[in-house]
């Protein structure tokens, strides 16, 4: 998909309903939002507000049932299965609350996983990319450990390494600190902020205000509707620059 001037993500009147034996359960209503490249956006809301569903749709893990979703100006519902797979392989990646690592596979094997499905990264570059991604999250010393031998924080950092190894445009993080202690949570958020500073667009889903405040923009969701879209928060870098100026 060629780069163009269109926003990275744009939704118009986006809707999502689940259908179960002809019973419709709407979960998202009239979502209009635009996310530009290199933004750090938090989608915040209580449980059941539809924030994870929205993330799944924006990340091409799920389909919307109404309205429009444009990815760099291209309508998502017009894309075929292979195109969606290609976008998932090259343009977006995910960090999940439950880590979703391959069981009985090492850190290295887990981080390698997206590269085997990447259509353009040559095999010869894989090892170097994996090593770099693992180094970025500070897990080089644990690269040969199996995923079930890692602490929660290490698991999530492995998931972050896996998310950044393909250098995607957008990294979606769904409650990335939800299963972590506070110290590990800070480390993970810090890693996400560094990725944003390195040029990645970060879309963070959380129900915690303190976690959301790491982002520069917070979209609040309640009962499937956007209730607030605030762009007053500053990134860590901006905050550090502010404090230096003071």
């Amino acid at each position: 998909m060629p780069e163009n001037d269109a926003p990275l993500i744009e939704t118009k009147n986006l809707q999502k309903s689940y259908f179960n034996e002809e019973l419709e359960t709407p979960v998202l209503f009239n979502i209009d939002l635009t996310i530009k490249k290199n933004e750090f956006v938090a989608i915040m809301g209580p449980s059941g507000s539809g924030k994870s569903t929205l993330m799944h749709i924006l990340g091409f893990l799920d389909h919307h049932t109404g309205g429009e979703y444009l990815f760099q100006g291209q309508l998502a519902h017009e894309m075929d299965e292979d195109t969606l797979s290609r976008i998932r392989a090259t343009r977006v990646s995910f960090v999940f609350q439950a880590f979703n690592l391959l069981p009985r596979a090492s850190v290295e094997q887990n981080v390698m996983l997206p590269l085997i499905y990447h259509p353009t990264i040559p095999e010869s570059e894989r090892a170097e990319r994996v090593a770099k991604a693992i180094e970025t999250v500070g897990l080089t010393h644990r690269k040969n450990n199996l995923s079930n031998q890692l602490s929660g924080g290490e698991k999530q950092r492995t998931a972050i390494a896996r998310a950044l190894v393909t250098e995607p445009d957008i990294i979606f993080a769904d409650e990335p600190t939800g299963n972590l202690d506070s110290v590990s949570g800070i480390q993970v958020m810090s890693a996400l902020q560094e990725l944003n500073e390195a040029g990645h667009t970060i879309i963070l889903v959380t129900h915690e205000k303190s976690t959301a405040e790491h982002a520069e923009r917070i979209i609040e969701l309640f009962d499937g509707r956007i209730t607030k879209d605030t762009t007053e928060f500053k990134t860590r870098k901006a905050k550090e620059e502010d404090s230096l100026q003071k």
């Binding site: 797979s85 995910f94 391959l102 996983l113 499905y117």
Partner: peptide, 13 residues
Amino acid sequence: KEIGLRKAVGARR
């Protein structure tokens, strides 16, 4: 779950 994960990171059908 593993299949879901593989698809999430770009595996085709």
